[in-house]
Simulated assay, not measured.
Amino acid sequence: MRSLQDTLYNWLTIKVVAEARPDDKSAQDTMKLFESILIDDHHLKEISVTKEDPMYYVSYKKDGETHKNRFPIELIDVMLEQIKNEPEKYHNYE
């Protein structure tokens, strides 16, 4: 099983891409995969994201307790920026 921190990082990174590219089925499916890992394997509830420069904050409940993790915006947005800078490499296959 992946660590919670790694799963949150991967989920947030692809969530940013999926929200920017709602027609990208691969991004949507990958986001759902990581979300299911967070819920089913790590038992998280009430997952939410806020963005306050220079960080993204992910809040969630686990075992009845509220937790908050933070990730630098530039680290999370790197995949989306790469897609924007080189769109020819990231086709949307349906």
Rank of each mutant, 00 (worst) to 15 (best):
M1H: 03
R2F: 12
R2P: 09
R2N: 12
S3C: 06
S3L: 08
S3M: 07
L4V: 02
Q5L: 08
Q5S: 08
D6N: 14
D6C: 07
D6M: 10
D6S: 14
L8K: 00
L8N: 03
Y9T: 05
Y9F: 14
Y9D: 07
N10F: 06
W11T: 00
W11N: 01
W11H: 06
W11Q: 00
L12F: 04
T13P: 01
T13R: 09
T13H: 02
I14T: 02
V16Q: 09
V17S: 04
V17F: 07
V17T: 02
A18T: 01
A18C: 05
E19C: 04
E19D: 15
A20C: 08
R21D: 04
P22D: 02
D23A: 13
D23I: 04
D23H: 11
D24Q: 01
D24S: 03
K25W: 09
K25G: 05
A27D: 06
Q28H: 08
Q28W: 08
T30E: 12
L33S: 11
L33Q: 10
F34M: 01
E35P: 03
E35T: 06
I37D: 08
I37A: 07
I39P: 06
D41F: 02
H42P: 13
H42K: 14
L44Y: 14
L44A: 09
L44R: 05
K45W: 00
E46S: 13
E46R: 12
I47W: 11
S48T: 13
S48N: 10
S48P: 02
V49A: 03
T50P: 01
K51H: 03
E52H: 10
E52G: 04
E52Q: 12
D53M: 11
D53T: 15
D53P: 07
P54K: 12
P54C: 13
P54S: 13
P54Y: 13
M55V: 06
M55F: 15
M55N: 15
M55K: 05
M55R: 03
Y56T: 06
Y56I: 07
Y57M: 11
S59K: 11
S59L: 06
Y60R: 02
Y60F: 15
K61Q: 14
K61Y: 10
K62Q: 15
D63I: 02
G64W: 10
E65Y: 15
E65L: 10
T66R: 14
T66Q: 15
T66I: 12
H67K: 12
H67W: 14
H67Y: 15
K68N: 06
N69D: 15
R70C: 07
P72G: 07
E74Q: 11
L75H: 11
I76E: 01
I76M: 01
M79S: 09
M79V: 12
L80A: 09
Q82S: 12
Q82N: 10
I83T: 07
I83S: 01
K84M: 04
N85F: 11
E86N: 15
P87G: 05
P87F: 05
P87C: 06
P87I: 01
P87V: 00
K89D: 06
K89S: 07
H91E: 14
H91R: 15
N92Q: 13
N92D: 09
Y93I: 14
